[in-house]
Design a protein around this nucleic acid. Sequence first.
DNA 1: GTCAGTGCAAACCCTTTGCAGAAAG
DNA 2: CTTTCTGCAAAGGGTTTGCACTGAC
Lengths: 141, 141
Amino acid sequence: METRSQLREQVTRKLLDSGINPTRQRLEIGVCLFEKDKHISADQVLELVNRGACEVSKATVYNTLGLFAERGLVRELVITPNKVVYDTNVSDHHHLYNVDTGDLQDLETDELHLNALPRLDDGVQIDGVDIIIRVKNKTPA
Amino acid sequence: METRSQLREQVTRKLLDSGINPTRQRLEIGVCLFEKDKHISADQVLELVNRGACEVSKATVYNTLGLFAERGLVRELVITPNKVVYDTNVSDHHHLYNVDTGDLQDLETDELHLNALPRLDDGVQIDGVDIIIRVKNKTPA
DNA sequence: GTCAGTGCAAACCCTTTGCAGAAAG
DNA sequence: CTTTCTGCAAAGGGTTTGCACTGAC
């Protein structure tokens, strides 16, 4: 498939730009991430990757996602202790989470933003701002 | 100690008001939580509780903290997948987290608030708004 | 006696670690 | 050859589950 090989090239470039050696396993994982282009859990990545012809271990998926997050290729979102997902959208935005359905949506900063950041101590700088709006269904009945 | 037994009474009342049967284990855990009156992890609760004369199992600590959070006695904060803490301050406020030192501070809403909430779908209502400002040290040296 | 409520040992499973093997120099 | 990097099996440990026990009726 043409687009598949294009994606492969794009991902290779992304990895090189981030100083990551584009090995077979990392490429497979990267393609799965950016192909889906949505919030995705480590488990889902593992399943997607192994649906293809190549075997990648669980440990490698976790370590690679951690590496990608550290280098800024993806953003790690901690929704609950048991729900950690990776977001390929690394631009400045926030999230809306439905605790009943598990649905997770992006909120762009024009829909939601802080009026001001707090005064910080000298010696520290912003590393990130995470905002999660949790909603629930009105009539659980 | 006088204040200790007063705290015990207060916690008992809190539990009853929330429809929770104030058993020995729940009281011990509740006293540890509200005595410390700060962000505290399940592990720390376990240690504090068992410093006293009564033995409470790990499972009971986890289940009880989950119950308290569900009933609104404490607020569960997910900082990272490996750092979950319970906050006895259940009023509307947010958090400042230093990723280098692990330090966690409260931010009152007058220091930090959203200019507006997003338009929600019909059928859903706000369950909670979590804002975490992550900071890091400027000179990791 | 029954039955809802409670506490915890053990199981579960997500994540990390340590190391064998590969790749680079 | 030595050194660095990589992938993964196995270990670790926080959390949940299933069940024995208690207490209420």
